[in-house]
Design a protein around this nucleic acid. Structure first.
Lengths: 234, 234
DNA sequence: CGCGCTCTTGATCAGGTTCAACATTAGTGG
DNA sequence: CCACTAATGTTGAACCTGATCAAGAGCGCG
């Protein structure tokens, strides 16, 4: 039911090229080096809902999103799902299984038709030796993720659901756009999971924030931020 | 009030040596290389309660614990403290400010008299180029930390306080010891903060677990685990 | 020895979950 | 293109976990 589609695995040179040249961990290198990297990278495509990998699986590849997006989530002992993060174009996952030679502890699922590039442990290891700057890029990304994740964890225990929702909305604001309208990139269900609550509570809190004149719901996925400062101050 | 003690900054070659040769990210290298590393590493000592760094500070060093331990914690907007992790000997911190050239977002405080080694960004960068294996070690450590932190975050939202406390206790069990007695390495207050609750609730839940015959409190910091399986099954 | 901690226990309270019913939207096939 | 169905989102009411406040007990330390 969640079978991979590997059809264009060796037929999308352009996709592979797009992958390596647009990815933060590679794009500081010049064309010659990108060519070399391209040779060791594989492309794969996944339909909406397909799993790139699942918990308990071993794997020795780093997966980089080329086009589309991946939901990274965990399942608790009781089967409750926790949305950990959404990977967008240029971001990578699979580092735990790759660097620590262990199993995945989360699930990666395509949210929309998604193209990824994958690089094996041995290939990556060679690249890291040839181009130490790649390692630095990955270190940057991983340390930023540790930080994000620790902040998220701290918010779960120190802030109210209302506060978490409010800051989530404000964070969606595009700094270099005049508009104060944000588009929710997640379903209410995923949004609820991400901020650590239920869809019912998200619904109620959005209503409350609207009654407080802090936001205005334009459509189901569009929200106008009326008072950014007050939202953060809650 | 939280002033650093740099007295033995250049007087403890032995400490520095201990540092580099015992640290996971370096200890796979041979003696010659360790000597080279030792040259670019600084030693510092902190008294109990002193801060190695604080949020909002910039810094360009990676801090590795040599002896003692560091509490890494965050402060929420409302001033609530969240214990993120405890660094023990051989572990490092400061990677966010170091790799991303930004400010710290957490605090690092000595829990006991603590000796650390520090290495600057430029020195580390040179080392990473000379010894790519160091980068791999750090990648391993950081990806493991991303994983731990995401798991911790997921637990906050998917498990009850009782479950989090129970798994915390079981995790303290030493696998290669016959004993089923664990020693709490944290004060009740820190323990409460770490698992995302209050000291009062910790007290009550421990009492409940004892009434369920799953644990037995030996002393204030020693607990006997009577039924590991049932604790994890809660 | 007594002062100031941390820890414990009790009582109350509130935020958020759960369950259930209803509304709305999106997706599917005639 | 509309109708139908399934999934998602909303609202209400009851319940429950865990936080808060307050008071007392134990403990270490000067």
């Amino acid at each position: 039911m969640t079978e991979q589609t590997n059809e264009n695995q060796h037929t999308c040179g352009s996709s592979r090229q797009g992958c390596v040249s647009m990815v933060p961990i590679f794009n500081h290198l010049d064309t010659d080096h990108l060519d070399e990297i391209m040779k060791v990278v594989d492309s794969k495509s996944f339909k909406k809902g397909e799993l790139v990998y699942r918990a308990e699986e071993t794997s020795d590849v780093l997966t980089i999103v080329n086009k589309g997006s991946l939901r990274i989530y965990r399942l608790s002992g009781s089967g409750k799902e926790q949305l950990v993060r959404v990977l967008k174009s240029g971001e990578f996952t699979g580092e735990l299984a790759l660097f620590n030679e262990t199993v995945h502890e989360n699930y990666a699922e395509a949210m929309v038709p998604t193209a990824v590039c994958q690089i094996t442990r041995s290939s990556l290891q060679k690249l890291l030796i040839s181009y130490p700057s790649i390692a630095i890029k990955i270190l940057q990304e991983l340390s930023a993720r540790v930080n994000q994740s620790e902040q998220q964890a701290a918010r779960f225990t120190t802030e109210s659901t209302e506060q978490r929702l409010a800051t989530y909305l404000v964070d969606l604001l595009d700094p270099d756009s005049q508009s104060n309208v944000v588009t929710l990139p997640l379903t209410k269900k995923d949004l609820a999971s991400y901020i650590g609550t239920t869809p019912e509570t998200v619904s109620r809190k959005l209503k409350e924030l609207e009654e407080m004149q802090l936001i205005k719901r334009i459509s189901s996925s569009k929200i106008s931020i009326l008072d950014e400062d007050e939202l953060l101050f809650l």
